[in-house]
């Protein structure tokens, strides 16, 4: 009897442990499929025209996404310009005041803001900036992306500043440095590679965001440099082309996705190589 029971236990053991392997497979398979389709459907449409031409009028083939590439670059640039200094300041605050009630409260707010749906952020910025400016704009899009960037980078900055061993800080104070000199002159430089990593990862994240741009940057079929005009962006164009009925646009959407993912991947690998981060940035 015991043998039969033991055999059943062994079978259960094998079955359940195999199921965990199956689960892992089921998780990895979509990734492989996505990359496969990106390459098979997208690589073909990646040509010079893609990178240099403007989108063709509706229904015509042969256009490109050059302005969207520029637009995404602009959006990310301005979002970083506005958002990074604020985020680093907030991050330093949280690292220094983290144990106080106010500091913990701010951290909670940051974590909650990291969880706000990106479309809600877009709507918020619409109500604030677009209505005030009277129209869609690059500025509004950048602000929306900045609002998403700030809590992300604030938290990673905090974690990196926290990682700086307190001996460094104490060393500075022992030398007679004032608190602000210690933080700005010693601690921040020590944390800078980690902070940079967090910044890069966050920039890669916002480069791929679509929802916040739907009613802020809105999109633009032409080249655009002005801050107060709508601007094209890669994710917006992918969306627009994906839901359209035109095959050529579908292929361009795949190509654009390939470019986007390539960018995101490169930036992430770069970021990780700068700082071997054992902690996951939430």
């Amino acid at each position: 009897m015991t043998d039969a029971i033991n055999r059943r236990r062994k079978i259960q053991n094998t079955v359940w442990l195999t199921l965990t392997g199956v689960a892992s497979l089921l998780v990895v398979v979509p990734l492989i499929l996505i990359f496969y389709h990106l390459i098979s459907s997208g690589a073909g449409a990646l040509n010079v025209a893609f990178f240099t031409r403007l989108p063709a009028p509706v229904g015509e083939t042969g256009g490109g996404m050059a302005n969207a590439l520029l637009g995404t670059a602009q959006l990310v640039f301005y979002a970083g310009l506005f958002g990074i200094p604020i985020a680093v300041a907030v991050g330093v605050f949280m690292a220094e005041a983290g144990r106080t009630r106010f500091g913990s409260f701010v951290r909670l707010v940051a974590d909650v803001m990291n969880g706000i749906p990106s479309i809600v952020v877009g709507i918020f910025v619409w109500a604030w900036v677009v209505v005030a400016m009277g129209g869609f704009s690059l500025l509004a899009g950048a602000i929306a992306l900045a609002v998403m960037l700030i809590p992300m980078v604030a938290r990673t900055t905090e974690e990196m500043v926290r990682l700086v061993p307190k001996e460094l800080r104490e060393g500075g104070q022992a030398l007679g440095f004032t608190r602000w000199r210690t933080t700005l002159g010693i601690v921040l430089p020590a944390a800078k590679s980690g902070i940079l990593t967090g910044v890069l990862v966050a920039l890669a994240r916002i480069a791929g965001e679509t929802a916040p741009l739907l009613f802020t940057a809105f999109g633009n079929p032409f080249w655009e440099w002005r801050l107060n005009e709508p601007v094209a962006s890669l994710p917006l164009l992918i969306y627009q082309y994906a839901i359209s009925p035109y095959d050529d646009w579908h292929r361009q959407a795949w190509a654009a996705s390939l470019v986007l993912i390539g960018l995101v991947l490169v930036v992430n690998v770069l970021a990780r190589s700068i700082f071997k981060n054992p902690y996951r940035s939430r």
Binding site: I238, L260, I261
Partner: peptide, 12 residues
């Protein structure tokens, strides 16, 4: 998987 933008998931 976490790094793939939502719109690319949608396309796929």
């Amino acid at each position: 998987l976490a790094a793939i933008p939502s719109v690319v998931y949608g396309l796929w």
